[in-house]
Design a protein around this nucleic acid. Structure first.
Lengths: 332, 332
DNA sequence: GACGAAATTGTGAACGCTAACATTCTTTGT
DNA sequence: ACAAAGAATGTTAGCGTTCACAATTTCGTC
């Protein structure tokens, strides 16, 4: 900077002012400085800047299970929205949800001088750990959010599950079976709750509940069992991957989808329209989620803490994997 | 740091020494300093550190199309491997491959004081732009790598494509059609080359070539056309998403897979085993790729430039979407 | 044509750390 | 017991910015 100042015949402070867009510098001077900067290929040292300003323009994100569609989309969208807001985003992936590894993740981010931390881990345990941690910067939650949680933005999982189940009930199915995600995931628990409540509202008992782990493999295994049960005419799987595994098993066992059994997924992965039959599922607007998360972060940074939870409502996408039950089934 | 020094009754330099693991400090003193650090909750300021050492312990990564399976896996694996090597990884996603946006991406990373840049963009144009850019740090390429390219680690796309096509030819198909990715992607071009060469080696003409864009949608459209062509008994799709769209179209048109037409994909996405029929595809070891990329980066940083290209050989995973052609087809 | 206010520019210190060198303690050998 | 070598610690000076304030210039006014 001193070199630039010398080349432009001004003081280093004037160079600094030009760089920071101060009004207090004559146009002519500004031009000279800019020219000197260009000529010398000068690039300002952000470490020095951070040292004195204490503002890193960086936010941290803690994430997990980035191989899964949802988490990875969220990570990308937060990163993107952050960049657009002029912030760098540091991502650290955790592999388990112990107090220790969360602590490490937070520490790593704090070492990078992040101004806020976005937590995108839907594990119940993780969220508890995080909220019990002493963190000297704002913490924003973007997954596994329940209503009334402060500093959080999420997708209304329960509403999404409800509309999926209601769609099936509306088609005439007496009840709907549910293949859950791992219930330690808030998302999974909320989708399950939505499934239950949809039945309760209509005063019918829900169909059988099977436990999955998000993987298509677990969907496949569940499918093998469902194929044996003549009473099941509709299944709501907690994500598309499991729905696909499930349909695979049904095919394998010669059960027709949707002729004999209807299937609904959740997530609307890009492949969903192209499995056979095209999967009816629930679409989540991840990019909107990222944008909202960053907006909230900016508010927190500006001190305008808005404690209300922002919730985004997902919507059902009807395709070919759902249909009315066969008349045969309805005879009584 | 001064506070810690005071609390421990030593000079700030001794604290610095403890923090940097210097040998030149008595055990007893070290313990005192550590205690003071713990008590005061002291955390060293990396900006100040970077300012004087000029080492950021950060590497940058330029990526694109993070919604796609491959790029996103690569991003995650590099990030992960980087962390394990003690480096933070800054990711910036580019949306087009103009000189300008690449320049911006590089500048953004340089502003973050990265010590090296990993480029994970398989677009031919992007790679050309990047190599023509003046970048004051080592640049490592991890996608769209061709043999003999310096500072690069990649997956042998052509070999992968070859083994896929040879599998089909071995099953007795006379030739194999190919659904390409966008050919500006080096990957797509290489897979296409592998498909061609496999045919050349056996002195047979390749089947028809159709242009796709990675999306299941484009696979679906290609599938509609292939379904009309009685001469096509086997298709090699350049990625799994297109393969899935393609199979969907074939189903829709009543063509049996693999009975009438065999299909091979590329990538081995998690859903591949659970589409119907389970997709034969080519598996790429992304986590290995990330590790290798970081190894190479570390070498470059240490000045041991190894100009040889590291290539990883992908392997075929045979599932149910491929079979010998029907005898009917082979009658002549 | 000189006065004051506003606009523009400059000066010195500080941010928290490490590098380089200086100093003070311990040993060790005789 | 004393020098010399080596181990452990301390001192000082930056790294490249911005901040707070001081100094200088410019301009409108009478």
């Amino acid at each position: 900077m001193t070199d630039v100042a010398a080349a432009a015949g001004v003081s280093h402070q004037t160079v600094s002012r030009v760089l920071n867009g101060s009004e207090l510098v004559r146009d002519e001077t500004r031009v000279r400085v800019l020219a000197a900067i260009a000529e010398l290929g000068y690039r300002r040292n952000n470490a020095a800047r951070l040292l004195v300003t204490n503002r890193s323009h960086r936010i941290g994100m803690i994430s997990a299970h980035l191989v899964l569609h949802g988490p990875s989309m969220i990570a990308v969208s937060v990163q993107d929205a952050g960049h657009k807001a002029g912030y760098d985003v540091s991502l650290v992936a955790v592999e388990d949800f112990s107090a220790q590894s969360l602590r490490e993740a937070v520490d790593r981010l704090l070492d990078e001088a992040v101004e806020a931390i976005v937590v995108a881990v839907a594990h119940r345990q993780a969220l508890e750990q995080v909220s019990s941690l002493e963190v000297p910067v704002p913490v924003i939650i973007v997954q596994g959010v329940s209503d009334g949680q402060p500093m959080a933005v999420g997708i209304e999982q329960e509403a999404g599950a409800r509309v999926a189940v209601e769609h099936l009930l509306d088609l005439g199915h007496r009840h709907v079976a549910h293949l859950t995600g791992p219930l330690e995931w808030v998302e999974a628990a909320q989708r399950r709750a939505g499934w239950q409540h949809a039945h309760e509202d209509r005063h019918v008992l829900p169909g059988p509940e099977l436990a999955g782990d998000w993987s298509p493999q677990s969907g496949y295994e569940a499918g093998l069992r469902i194929a044996e049960d003549p009473d099941v005419t509709a299944v709501f799987a907690a994500n598309d991957g499991m729905a696909m595994g499930l349909m695979y098993a049904l095919h394998e066992k010669g059960r027709d989808v949707p002729g004999e059994i209807s299937v609904v997924g959740f997530d609307n992965v890009p492949e969903a329209p192209y499995v056979w039959p095209a999967l009816t599922t629930v679409n989540q607007e991840f990019s909107l989620l990222g944008r909202r998360a960053v907006e909230l972060t900016m508010q927190a940074l500006a001190g305008e803490a808005d404690p209300s939870t922002q919730l985004i409502r997902p919507e059902l996408v009807v395709r070919d994997s759902t249909a009315a039950p066969r008349p045969a089934v309805r005879e009584r």
